[in-house]
Each structure stands twice: as structure tokens, then as C-alpha cells.
Amino acid sequence: MKRLKFAKSKCIGCQLCAQACSAMHEGEYIPSKARINIESYYDKGGELKYKDSFCILCGICKKQCPVGAITLEEHIVVDHTICIGCGVCERACPKKVIRIRDEKSYICDTCDGDPACVKICPQNALTFE
């Protein structure tokens, strides 16, 4: 099963990944609604740090979901007709990338095996392998 991989030494903090993701799923460039959230920043100006929230397909969300709304085969699928927006998955996610919006859970679906974030990442920091 292919997963997203992130090489932080290649990341330039451009956030094109979040823009591409939200374009494909939300119809706008709106990183706050993206299912990937990678940023770099200078901590007190002295150290370059990264926040790398991306789905690693660990499956913890699926295991923790109390209503069985989440399935994982090649990628995560959330059935919004079952999802009750309880937020257990959001709290359990080790990469802190799941978001509850309007009482539904939004999780990366790898764009059905052809991730837009990987295609746009200009420095190939994100790969799908």
C-alpha cells in the first residue's frame, strides 16, 4: 500500500500542498480546509522547524471510530452518512491532520491514489510510495 512520505530537508514551506488539496476537494484555495498541513517556521528566528501534518495511513482513526464510519483499504474513506462528528478520530490522529467541520470528519483520501499535493510539491519533498 502506497503512503505519503515527507522529506523535511527538501521542504521550502511554500504550502502549495495545502492549496492543491483544498482546490481538489473544496473548490477554493483554502488551506484551513485542506487535508494536509505542512509548514516551516523560524522558532525565535534561531531554528528552522517544521509542522508536518499529513496522513500516514496508520489506521488509528478507523480503529477508534465508535460508529464504524471509517474504512481503510488503499486509503481512508469516511462515510459521511454514518459519521456523527464526535471528534474521536480528530483527537486520536497522531499527525493532527484530521478536522471536524460541520459535524463531519475530513480525512485525506490520497486523491484516490493520485495525490495532488505530491504532484505540485516543487521540491519533491512529498512523495507517494
Binding site: I12, C14, Q15, L16, S40, L48, P122, Q123
Partner: peptide, 13 residues
């Protein structure tokens, strides 16, 4: 050099 960074939406860094 210990790191690379660019602006928002930059491809070149």
C-alpha cells in the same frame, strides 16, 4: 547553510 525556505506559493525557495 542549515536550511532552505521560500515564500508562500513559491516553487523556487
Amino acid at each position: 547553510r542549515v536550511g532552505k525556505r521560500g515564500c508562500g506559493s513559491c516553487g523556487l525557495g
